[in-house]
Amino acid sequence: MNDRRYSIIARLGIVCLWALSSKLVSNEIMIPTIGGTLVNLIDIVTDSSFPMIIRSTLLRGLAGFLISLSLAIILGIAANISRLIYNFMMPILNFLKSVPTMAIIILALIWLSNSNAPMFVGFIMVFPILYETVLNGILNIDSKITDMAQLYKVGRITLIRDIYIPSVIMNLKTVLTSTLGLNFKMVIAGEVLSQPTYAIGSNLQLQKLYLNTPGVFAWIIIIIILINVLEWGIESAMKILKIRRQWK
């Protein structure tokens, strides 16, 4: 209960700091007022294209994340089984981790359509983290359990389904919410540059072009709410799955 109270106090502190600094600066373009931002927020939310914008960015983010997650699980497990795949993935991972994100975003813009480029940007950022989490999840499996499975002549598919995948999921749970948030941030950054018709990023860029800082702030508030709702959704889903498993 104390933690919750401190958290509310901290949030109120940020709002107070915002109100104070906007008052001190007294320039809507540099730091907008809370009132001005709220007016813009209402305008954005009540606009007829708002649901479509949110839906498009959400779909891009979720589809990209699911592709990253599925590929990370499949390739992570395959890399543990096959030395060839492990060695093949190594330079790709090193490339993805060392090449500047901006360079990859530019390449994505050249190679892909405006709508798909942001998904790729999210994938590039999130895939290496998820892949390494999968690899570590399997490496952390107690070798005594895999030895037992081998002596009982348990088949490879059963071993993957009953030992590898649950271990991987348990490890992934710890990074799932943070990587989902990171993925959305990168997708929106990709949208700013690739300018799809319906996208949060495109609208952020539009507000910037008009020097409408309250509009930029309003979109930031929408993004924060969106990512928090998604993280809450994931955490709730995991809790429900845990409870269902205990009641099984």
Binding site: K144, I145, A149, K153, V154, G155, T158, D162, P166, M170
Partner: peptide
């Protein structure tokens, strides 16, 4: 049977036995 039970923590008793019988 080993010194350690080598049970799979995320499987219940029934599923632990089933694991070695499945294939």
């Amino acid at each position: 049977v080993y010194q350690e039970d080598r049970l799979i923590e995320w499987k219940n008793v029934r599923d632990n036995i089933e694991f070695v019988l499945r294939d």
